[in-house]
Design a binder for these strands. Structure first.
Length: 646
RNA sequence: GCUGGCGUAGCUCAGCGGUAGAGCAGCGGUUUCGUAAACCGCAGGUCAUCGGUUCAAAUCCGAUCGCCAGCUCCA
């Protein structure tokens, strides 16, 4: 038998007989490792532990703590669920059942049967039963014809459709217990590894993700190697519910969504407006420092504007129907750029004046499908903290870097530490989706990548995610339930300056075409604040809190002193209210704690006599008495620094 | 838009064929109180809307509207 050399992650090498399996290698290292091993990475590819390794390889044993291990685990769980379903509902047809970021799903055709929560409970119970058999997942290679024959006999049209695309190739099957599936794996050694199971939800999902196909029923589930980990996961789900911005928005009276106004058309309540305006003022101030010029434009515009820009043909389906006035058609503006271009184009520009940075908090209107609407995060009317920057080609990279710097400032000020960045490029296989010449796209994508590298952004590339007029850098943040959302965006545009015939006079006296950057650090005020509410769980830092402090009088005796304290804070610029209700302090404290107000200032006999306030901090409790001016000073400093904590 | 689930007082929810209920919030009183809910009383609803079944519908059936989850979409 030939010997092979295996290189382990620490760089050490070991000799084994050719054909040795990952599991055997794990056993040779330690029993504990073999017990926890789920899969093995062989030369960067994830394999089953039971698969024989035939030649020299670098190898890593994958456990639960690795993504590859988790994926194999959840993938195997999906197969286990399918087996349970087949046992309970014979004749069901299976689509696909992959692992996802957290857990797995399987798309299944149940015929006429609609799954109920009771069905899920039944399937879950069956899964526990099947897992306990502790049977192995067995990999098997088959000839294509044999694979087709198997699913023909079984009568599964979806698997046959998948096989059509693999024609002529060697097909791998995986079998555990009474269930065999078409699958390239890898899988964990046996069902017994699956200890804790939770089926989460059922939802419709189109076969192969196309609206034209039949809708299957998708069951989402998640499994863990221990009950404890499942409990922790469920706790996180509940925590996410607690942070839901729609719930907090109502409780804290930040915004209102009512069908009386219309879906996706939020009303900003006084408290929410304070948060929003505070954020706007913050950005306006930073932009003022950086030479942006504020402008204001109307909410509608002639449809010709959008025909020129190219939005109209590309995005007809997601705009509100045009309104007709005196035989002319107007559009509720889906974006601000065409308006800003008119401002630039209204007079000639010298190369010396560039870059010109026009900025506006511009409200735009987009017709989103009703099923897409989601609190503040997906709406039909939203305000973009927009800017369009007109510049020479030689200024582009520097401007891109400055914009990235501003966005980083905004994100870090608001405590978003682990945002992701995506370089959104076009899909070269689908060029008709995009406007503009090839050469311009290649140039623009190179510019973006250079700027991202220079600013040391930690990014990944998203093919097919570009705007129709140019590539983007998108800043992505996770919400409370783990969904990622695009917030800030920077886009390079060579296309629209062409369409709008924008120009400047160069040092050579000739006309030249400027480059445009579209950028929005918040992206949309609505979405940003929606995510922000969840990020802070409604507990805003002092500078953003709609109400920063409440003065609590203990009895009627103290109201006049409390009024004096309130007036002093107010004139110092602190957002403060007086609670002089005829209630016990305990009651008042409870009420304002639930409203998440950062500070409560309790005033009674002692404070009145000493001219102090008893400071109570949200969630921290009593901080003791403090001189009035000392509190004001401390609070103002914190606000001024935009501190994330008090 | 599609599939499924859900619509009862301002909010959270009970009632699930036999005359609409509770707690909180609101209003009126009593109480004047030191770090997370004082007490008494009053008021508040075409049970989403429309239609059907029934002697009788919040409750059963259908349609419409809205909300939620997922899918599709996302400038």
């Amino acid at each position: 038998m030939a010997k092979i050399t295996i290189t382990l992650p620490d760089g050490s090498t070991k000799e084994f007989e050719s054909g040795i399996t990952g599991l055997q290698i794990a056993e040779s290292i330690s029993k504990g490792l073999a017990r926890e091993a789920l899969a093995v990475e062989v030369n960067g590819e994830v394999w089953d532990l039971s698969r024989g390794i035939l030649s020299d390889a670098s190898l890593k044993i994958l456990k639960w703590d690795s993504d590859g291990g988790k994926y194999a685990y959840w993938h195997s769980s999906a197969h286990l669920m399918a087996e349970a379903i087949e046992a309970l509902y014979p004749g069901t047809k299976f689509g696909i059942g992959p692992p996802i970021e957290t857990g797995f799903y399987y798309d299944i055709d149940f015929g006429d049967h609609n799954l109920t929560p009771e069905d899920l409970a039944k399937i879950e119970t069956k899964m526990y039963e099947l897992a306990a058999r502790d049977v192995p997942y067995i990999r098997e290679e088959k000839k294509w014809e044999d694979a087709v024959a198997y699913f023909k006999k079984k009568g599964d049209p979806y698997k046959l459709e998948l096989l059509e695309e693999l024609k002529g190739q060697t097909i791998t099957f995986y079998q555990q217990g009474n269930f065999t599936d078409l699958c390239y794996g890898p899988h964990i050694p046996s069902t017994g590894r699956i200890k804790a199971i939770k089926l989460l939800s059922v939802a419709g999902a189109y076969w192969r993700g196309s609206e034209k196909n039949k809708m299957l029923q998708r069951i989402y589930g998640v499994t863990f190697p221990s009950k404890k980990e499942l409990d922790e996961y469920i706790f996180r789900l509940e925590e996410a519910k607690r942070r839901d911005h729609r719930k907090l928005g109502q409780e804290l009276e930040l915004f209102l969504l009512t069908p009386k106004v219309g879906g996706g058309l939020p009303l900003w309540l006084p408290k929410g407006t304070i948060v929003r305006e505070t954020l706007e003022n913050f950005l306006k101030e930073e932009q003022r420092k950086r030479g942006y010029l504020p402008v204001v434009t109307p909410h509608v515009g002639s449809i010709n504007l959008y025909k020129t820009s190219g939005h109209y043909p590309y995005y007809k389906d997601s705009q509100f129907t045009p309104v007709k006035v005196e035989d002319e058609e107007y559009l509720l503006k889906p974006m601000n750029c065409p308006h800003h271009f008119q401002i630039y184009a209204a007079k000639p520009h010298s190369y010396r004046d560039l870059p010109i940075r026009l900025a506006e908090f511009g409200t735009v209107y987009r017709y989103e499908q009703s099923g897409e609407l989601n609190g503040l995060i997906r709406v039909r009317s939203f305000t973009v903290d927009d800017s369009h920057m007109f510049m020479r080609q030689d200024q582009l990279k520097d401007e891109l870097c400055k914009v990235i710097e501003l966005i980083q400032l905004v994100f870090t000020t608001l405590g978003f530490q682990d945002f992701k960045t995506r370089l959104s490029f076009r899909d070269p296989k689908n060029k008709e989706k995009y406007g503009g010449e090839d050469a311009l796209w290649i140039q623009a994508e190179r510019d973006i990548k250079e700027a991202a590298d220079f600013m040391k952004l930690n990014y990944y590339i998203g093919i097919g995610e570009a705007a129709f007029y140019g590539p983007k850098i998108d800043f992505m943040v996770r919400d409370a339930i783990g969904r990622t959302w695009q917030l800030g965006t920077v886009q390079v545009d060579y296309v629209m300056p062409e369409r709008f015939n924008l120009e400047y006079i160069g040092s050579d006296g000739q006309k030249h075409r400027p480059v445009v950057i579209h950028r929005a650090p918040f992206g949309s005020m609505e979405r940003f604040i929606g995510v922000l509410i969840e990020h802070f769980a409604g507990e805003f830092p002092l500078w953003l809190a709609p109400l920063q402090a409440v003065v609590l009088s203990i009895t009627d005796e103290h109201i006049s002193y409390a009024e004096q304290v309130t007036a002093e804070l107010k004139s110092a610029g602190i957002r403060v209210e007086l609670d002089d209700r005829n209630e016990k302090v305990n009651r008042k404290i409870r009420d304002w704690e639930t409203k998440k107000v950062p500070f409560m200032l309790v005033v009674g006999d002692k404070e009145k006599a000493n001219g102090t306030v008893a400071v109570r901090q949200h969630k921290k409790g009593d901080l003791g008495a403090m001189a009035r001016d000392a509190f004001v000073k401390k609070a103002l400093e914190n606000i001024q620094q935009k501190a994330l904590t008090v």
